[in-house]
Structure formats: structure tokens, C-alpha cells
């Protein structure tokens, strides 16, 4: 299992990367940590003509703190978040999420931006960042735009990114001191894909009570008003929500997603 031949470029700046992408007419693939793309290349499932390695772009490794939020460059690794090398403005949620992605050797290379762009419904950041009302910072030939993460993933393995755009980073609002969260991920083995992900966030100072159902078949399902989960678990309404998230037809999936939400809520109130 060796990849088909591909060309390789490692641009030094965003403009260079965008230019390469624009000139590739869809046959190029951006690679950051390569932990998702690598297996697909090896299995010959992905056969791009050009791989654009964006790890050489300084801006993608930057962290900046501004206006009640923090911006993480796309190439920040899961391990850096897990280890607290990056300031955690989510009262431990992001550290917990990062620490449970795949395996350490993968977390050392895998990046938050790469994971978002890969848009795997079962991926952790894809599921949890919408809970935090994060935003995606996108660079393209026409400059920069910002999209709510909630709308960044449009479906499984599909995002709002145009073929010549690059995700520069994610903006994460800071939680207030009174904020509480509960997160639950069910997988058959540590490091395996999640069968269900649920997370609940209550931040009264910012008037937030949100929940998310992740590891769906498509984009994660955000519950804007999650009081029926956070305050007295309303099992019937949760069931309806699970159905609405598109994971309720199969009894097994219905059960595990329902349970995941229940346990996330329990942890919230622990």
C-alpha cells in the first residue's frame, strides 16, 4: 500500500499556498499534519496530483488573544492543546477533547485546522467547536472571510471552503468564569472513531445554554437552547432531537446518542 505518485510543494506564505491551489484546478490537496490524508494516500483512496504542505506557513502556527476570544492557527497540534501549551479559554474542555483524539503519536502531528477541513462527522473538533460558537478564518484569492464553525462543515467531509481557499485558524470565544460544560464520547476503544459524541455548555454570564450531537452522519447537530438537557433532562425531547439530528432511525444509534447526551448532562452538573 504505497501512494500513487504526486507532486509536492511547501509554500512559505499564505499567498503562495492560495496561488498554488488556484493553479491546480482541483487536483491539489492541502496537507497539514497529514494524519488523515496519509492513510488515504497509502491506500490509494486519495490520488491528488499535488500535495501542498502548509506547515511552513508561520501564520498558521500563531496564537493570538483578542476581544474576548483567542485565535488558534490551523497548524496548532492536538498535542499542544492537550498539554496546555496553548492557553485554554474553555475551562478545560478543549484540553479534554484534544487528549482523547486518536493516539499521542497522531496528536503530535495532527492539527486542529486539518481536522476541521477534513470534516469527518465523527471528528472531535468538528463536533465540539460548534458548541463553543467558534468561527473559522478563511483566506482566499479575494482576501479573508470569517464563517461560524456551525456553518463551516456543510456535510460529511465537506465544508464551505472553495477549492482555492485555506483555513487559517479558528476563533474561540472565552468562556466566563461561571461557565460549566459536560462532554461525553463513546468509542469502542480509545483512539477509535467515536460512535457518539455529546457536549453541553452552560455559560450564564454570556447567556449561553447550548448542546451538540456529534458523530452523526453529516454536520454536527447544534441545539441552541439546551435547557431541556441541562436543567432536568427531558428524555422525550432529547429523543426527538436525536431523531432530528438524523441518527435516530437505527435503534442502536438512537440509544447511544441519547445516552451520550444524558451522560454529558450528568457531567455538566457533577
Amino acid at each position: 500500500m504505497k501512494p500513487v505518485a504526486f507532486d509536492y510543494e511547501r509554500p512559505r506564505d499564505l499567498a503562495g499556498a492560495v496561488k498554488l491551489l488556484a493553479g491546480s484546478s482541483g487536483a491539489a490537496k492541502v496537507m497539514a499534519g497529514g494524519q488523515s490524508l496519509g492513510p488515504m494516500l497509502n491506500l490509494r483512496l486519495a490520488q491528488p496530483q499535488l500535495v501542498i504542505d502548509v506547515r511552513g506557513i508561520g501564520e498558521l502556527h500563531a496564537v493570538s488573544d483578542a476581544n474576548g476570544s483567542i485565535v488558534l492557527g490551523s497548524c496548532i497540534t492536538h498535542a499542544a492543546i492537550e498539554d496546555g501549551v496553548i492557553q485554554d479559554v474553555t475551562r478545560g474542555l478543549m484540553r479534554e477533547v484534544a487528549a482523547n483524539i486518536a493516539y499521542r503519536a497522531v496528536r503530535n502531528r495532527g492539527t486542529i485546522g486539518g481536522s476541521m477541513c477534513h470534516a469527518d462527522p465523527a471528528a472531535d473538533w468538528v463536533s465540539v467547536l460548534p458548541l463553543l460558537s467558534a468561527a473559522a478564518l478563511i483566506e482566499g484569492p479575494r482576501g479573508r472571510r470569517e464563517v461560524d464553525v456551525e456553518h463551516f462543515v456543510t456535510g460529511a467531509f465537506s465544508t464551505v471552503l472553495e477549492e482555492n481557499e485555506i483555513l487559517v485558524g479558528v476563533r474561540i470565544p472565552k468562556l466566563s468564569a461561571a461557565a460549566r460544560w459536560g462532554h461525553y464520547k463513546f468509542c469502542r476503544k480509545p483512539g477509535e472513531f467515536a460512535e457518539a459524541i455529546a457536549a453541553v455548555l452552560v455559560d450564564p454570564d454570556r447567556n449561553v445554554c447550548r448542546a451538540v450531537i456529534g458523530a452523526t452522519h453529516s454536520a454536527p447537530h447544534v441545539i441552541e437552547d439546551a435547557h431541556f438537557i441541562a436543567e432536568g433532562f427531558d428524555s422525550e425531547r432529547v429523543l426527538a432531537t436525536v431523531m432530528a439530528a438524523g441518527v435516530g432511525d437505527d435503534p442502536y444509534e438512537r440509544q447511544i446518542h441519547h445516552t451520550a447526551l444524558k451522560r454529558a448532562a450528568l457531567r455538566l452538573n457533577a
Partner: peptide
């Protein structure tokens, strides 16, 4: 493919 991708690459 999806089953595979999510299993392998949920990172």
C-alpha cells in the same frame, strides 16, 4: 467510504 474515514481519520 464514510465508515472508513470516520473510523480511521476521526482526528
Amino acid at each position: 467510504i464514510k465508515g472508513f474515514l470516520r473510523s480511521l481519520l476521526g482526528r
